[in-house]
């Protein structure tokens, strides 16, 4: 009873002025530690990057002339030095994303459904599917480059023939997507698995009592139950795919020509090897805008379904 009274008092605003001021500070104080990190490592560099993108920027050269939107304009000017390379790399990123995301949504779900059943050795298989994910991109990149070597690799030795896995299209895309699915499947599977275990047993029982089969259970219980994690998995997978760098860099080196050179790879080369940081920052911002737009669309799709 006393507690209730206290709460009424608080909600009624009958507290001392000191308390109230304190209360309005409280949420910000709780946010502060994270905001410091976010501000230092995300917000400030992002704003600084925007500033860089408006200049002809090399951190070692004294001039850093202000060029306004020239760096952005060059990305839309077919006669500029960066136009072809940039859009080629965006296209490569697009192809990779379009090919890998559906697989990385469906295959881990299938694996998670299997691993969610109880059978002997379940933990072993869970570990096995997750194992490649703990390897660094350098390890899996070099490993698969050797295995996929068109003339000397183990894959062609097993399959026979001399499929150009790393040097020709579309094979190079199959390799890059396949390796990525093998490598990161475990991560999405673990998230799905956690989602599956959150779905209340009673719902399945209810579905069975209502006479639903396996397919109906999956459609009407499992999938809706997974929606919260699905949003995370979709967004995260799309962003990961759009940021692909290491696999192309190590397995195909962008070959044939520059056709598998991804946007991040080209941006890194422009900014960190050629030291054209203004131009690289502009490209990053364009890529960021594209990813923001895609993320918004995905959020919207999930919201309208609710």
């Amino acid at each position: 009873m006393t507690m209730l009274q206290e709460r009424e008092q608080t909600e009624g605003g009958q507290v001392s002025p000191g308390m109230r001021r304190n209360a309005s500070f409280t949420p910000y104080l709780f946010l502060l530690p994270y905001f410091l990190l976010f501000g230092t490592f995300m917000l400030a560099p992002a704003v600084y990057g925007l500033w860089i993108s408006l200049h002809d920027w090399d951190y070692l050269l004294p001039g850093k002339p202000f060029v306004g939107l020239d760096n952005y304009q060059a990305l839309f000017d077919p006669a500029s030095a960066v136009y072809d390379f940039f859009w080629q790399s965006m296209q490569a990123t697009g192809v990779f994303t379009a090919l890998s995301v559906p697989l990385l949504l469906v295959a881990p779900l299938a694996v998670a459904l299997l691993l969610n059943r109880s059978f002997p050795g379940r933990t072993f298989f869970r570990a096995t599917y997750f194992a490649p994910y703990v390897l660094g991109v350098a390890v899996i990149g070099v490993l698969w480059r050797f295995l996929l070597d068109p003339n000397l690799g183990a894959v062609n030795a097993l399959l026979g023939g001399s499929t150009p896995w790393t040097t020709d299209l579309p094979w190079a895309w199959f390799s890059l997507v396949g390796v990525t699915v093998w490598w990161t499947l475990g991560f999405n599977a673990v998230i799905y698995l956690a989602g599956l275990q959150d779905i209340p047993r009673e719902l399945y029982e209810a579905a069975r009592i209502d006479g639903g089969g396996k397919w109906a259970e999956f459609r009407h219980v499992t999938l809706p139950g997974l929606r919260p994690v699905l949003l995370f998995v979709v967004i995260n997978t799309v962003l990961q795919a759009a940021n692909m760098f290491g696999q192309s860099y190590l397995i195909t080196q962008g070959a044939p020509g520059v056709e598998t050179r991804t946007a991040i790879m080209y941006i890194a080369q422009t900014g960190l090897r050629d030291f054209k940081m203004g131009s690289a920052a502009a490209m990053s911002y364009l890529l960021t805008l594209a990813l923001l737009a895609i993320s918004l669309i995905i959020f919207r799709l999930f919201r309208t379904r609710d």
Binding site: G49, I52, Y59, L61, I264, G271, L272, R273, M277, A281
Partner: peptide
């Protein structure tokens, strides 16, 4: 090419003006 991601450009850039 480069081992680092594009984010490095920003960090490098931050070493900035006292070149």
């Amino acid at each position: 090419g480069l081992g680092a991601g594009a984010g490095g450009a920003v960090l490098l850039g931050a070493c900035g003006d006292s070149g």
